[in-house]
Design a protein around this nucleic acid. Structure first.
Lengths: 130, 130
DNA sequence: ACCTATGCTAACCTATAGGTCAACTGGTTG
DNA sequence: CAACCAGTTGACCTATAGGTTAGCATAGGT
């Protein structure tokens, strides 16, 4: 038995950058399921990893509901039943397509921003050495 | 005087995929400023382009407030005063950095999804030709 | 003159993602 | 034992991004 690190909610909050309130919310939405000790939530390294996945997914604009189904893919990955595997394959394909499209849109927006940025720099330079 | 195409709100909605309600909301938030004819909103091709920028920005997870400042960059781009140019250069740099970071996170998430996806495919194949 | 299409504002309702606050519990330690 | 964490639930509040509905106005067609 390895003594794995365990965290209280405030501690996890500090480590992750999320607030305790947000962490509880994620649990209420089914994204986290910490063990309980005398009613208090106790988090493991696995929970910590899950939480960073959640925060990263949030940062790219996913809703908690989406993230939930996303996280379920991790859980089911190991399960060997064919139906499960097929489900995982289908859902990951969807998510991948969606993220690729999002990425493409970011690239378009980036291209336009760079145009404006460079153009303005040129203009400023021209105006200065005149 | 070129006769440019003009659109009513329902028409623009149909063309863009947004609802009239959403379009009015964007105006209320300062993202669009259509001309008025007898009180009714009239949109030009320029408004149409702006709207697609808005929708694209929304699709990548920007809030309307962010998009607003973003759109102002387009407006100010042409203005030649130095302060304006400096402002535009600074803000576009910020936005660019932000989007690049977002893009990187999407890439990380994509990498993980692809691992799960491919792994599951392998598993399924292994199980089938056994 | 009347009807229909299109549009307008205003008011209200919804879901999402939390912040804030109150009241309570359980363990530790001086 | 009292005081103090750290934590709990529950209730209420907020902002964002719209949907829905109602009531009124206007223009065009017949």
């Amino acid at each position: 038995m390895e003594a794995q690190p365990l965290y209280g909610i405030t501690e996890l909050a500090a480590l992750s950058g999320a607030t305790p309130r947000a962490i509880r919310l994620y649990e209420a939405k089914g994204l986290l399921k910490p063990r309980r000790v005398n009613g208090a939530r106790v988090y493991t390294a696995v929970d910590r990893t899950r939480l960073s996945l959640i925060l990263r997914a949030k940062a790219i604009g996913s809703t908690l509901a989406e993230i939930r189904t996303f996280l379920e893919l991790y859980g089911r990955e190991g399960e060997g039943r064919e139906k499960q595997l097929e489900y995982v394959i289908a859902r990951t394909a969807e998510k991948i397509a969606e993220l690729e499209s999002r990425r493409a849109k970011i690239d378009e927006t980036l291209a336009e921003l760079r145009l404006i940025h460079e153009g303005s720099k040129q203009r400023l330079a021209a105006r200065r050495d005149r």
